[in-house]
Design a protein around this nucleic acid. Structure first.
Lengths: 250, 250
DNA sequence: CTAATAGTGTCTATCAGACATTATAAG
DNA sequence: CTTATAATGTCTGATAGACACTATTAG
């Protein structure tokens, strides 16, 4: 009986090994321009979900990919043409019904790119890549698979991290003013922030440095240009969180 | 024996199929007792890493598992005998060298259980489950695969979330005193916390409620017993983070 | 009484937010 | 001059941390 049971186990495991899930790597790539948070989507050229929009991604290939991060970075560079961008693992989703073809597992990432450095991959015969505006955390088009949920999760993470880290600098060009940085925070947080508080916090966090003598000119007082200063762990911890403070207002 | 051999062939062929990785679900299960943070480890009964300790886990079964979460929860219940514990996805690791047998992908979770509710699975012939004390974020035994890295990541996440959420209540029995709750925080944060500040924050967060009339007695002033109050989203956001405050001291 | 732990009160430094004020450009 | 935006200053309320203090049990 014991032998029979263990045999069953082996058989089951045998089937299981054969029935591995298909593993995908999908990325939510964000940028900010036109005063809006944007996400990069790909129009699907084939079934399932033909003509729907989806997150850039692809199947993991164990022969060519040496890590998940590498697979994600490859996809990111392929789509945006930009290397060394901010990339962070998000969540992993799995289930039998995510894709009608198979039990699939998606390891999702989220990436931040500066709009001015991106050159979208030329639209091929079947695939079209396009920035979509996020309004109330949603795009206007319907998304393939469970990608809508992934987008929500990605925005939620982005907003959470914005509150206690410096990652917003990755959305800006190499040189930027503090007002521009604050504007990015406001666009993503969907809240107006206090100028002096914001500046004090940014100064304390020590993540930007003025570029001596360089100013952004216009028909008003010129603004000091800053650049991002790399930090080990590149985190800036705010002593109080912006989100909490705003929570208190209600 | 012949049956075994042919089954092995099937298994091997399964591995080769379509360049898919083998998918594992591993869990870092924490508890607190004896004034120490503990993690549940399993002694491996077979190669590779025979006799090393590893995180509880197993291969994802696409035939029986309907989601990753379900697979993780099954593993958690199997090991601890406790249902409905705190379970959260951690990270996903993948690479060709994590396991000598195959390109593997581990979806890792972390779980919190109350020590008094756990009954460790009876040790079978080959597997032994045991709580290991974490000292300086390390166990005294060597871990299989890249599980040491996963444990580090899990502790780091636990500590981070402790700072702005209420998850520590999941490490305590159903009834507890505020001093006990504070002690759990101190054990994990490895810092002594201020009593009045801690109590004010806990009170404001509104996540525990006194159990009317119930007191813990001893050879000192009796302490009010509290119970956990479920909250939607079950998060308590501290207006200032404990960690930051302590960062400032240096 | 003492010992031990529970629980509260007071003071201080710090910080976010609100709002005002000054600075510097173009036209 | 006006307009626009940059940048700084001032005041207030909230709060974490330090530390002292009171409360309540057992023995």
């Amino acid at each position: 009986m014991v032998i029979f049971a263990s045999l069953l186990t082996v058989i089951t495991q045998g089937f299981m090994e054969k029935n591995k899930p298909t593993v995908m790597v999908d990325i939510a790539i964000f940028t900010v321009f036109e005063d809006k948070l944007k996400i990069l989507l790909i129009k699907r050229g084939s079934e399932p979900f033909k003509d729907s929009w989806a997150l850039p991604g692809g199947a993991l290939n164990t022969v060519t990919d040496n890590s998940l991060e590498e697979a994600a970075m490859r996809e990111l560079v392929e789509e945006t043409g930009v290397e060394n961008q901010y990339l962070e693992q998000l969540c992993t989703y799995g289930g039998p019904d995510r894709d009608p073809r198979d039990w699939t597992l998606s390891v999702t990432y989220f990436a931040l790119v500066a709009a001015d450095e991106v050159t979208l991959r030329a639209g091929t015969d079947t695939m079209e890549a396009k920035w979509h505006t996020l309004t109330q955390d949603k795009v206007e088009v319907s998304l393939a698979f469970d990608h809508e949920r992934i987008v929500c999760e990605a925005i939620s993470r982005l907003r959470a991290k914005l509150d206690y880290t410096d990652i917003a600098v990755h959305l800006l060009p190499k040189e930027f003013t503090l007002s521009e940085l604050q504007r990015v925070y406001e666009i993503i947080m969907q809240e107006k922030l206090n100028k002096s508080s914001f500046r004090m916090r940014v100064a304390r966090a020590d993540i930007v440095a003025p570029i001596n003598g360089k100013m952004r000119t216009g028909s008003n007082r010129p603004a000091q240009l800053y650049q991002f200063v790399k930090h080990e762990g590149d985190r800036m911890f705010f002593p109080r969180s912006i989100a909490w403070a705003q929570e208190r207002k209600k």
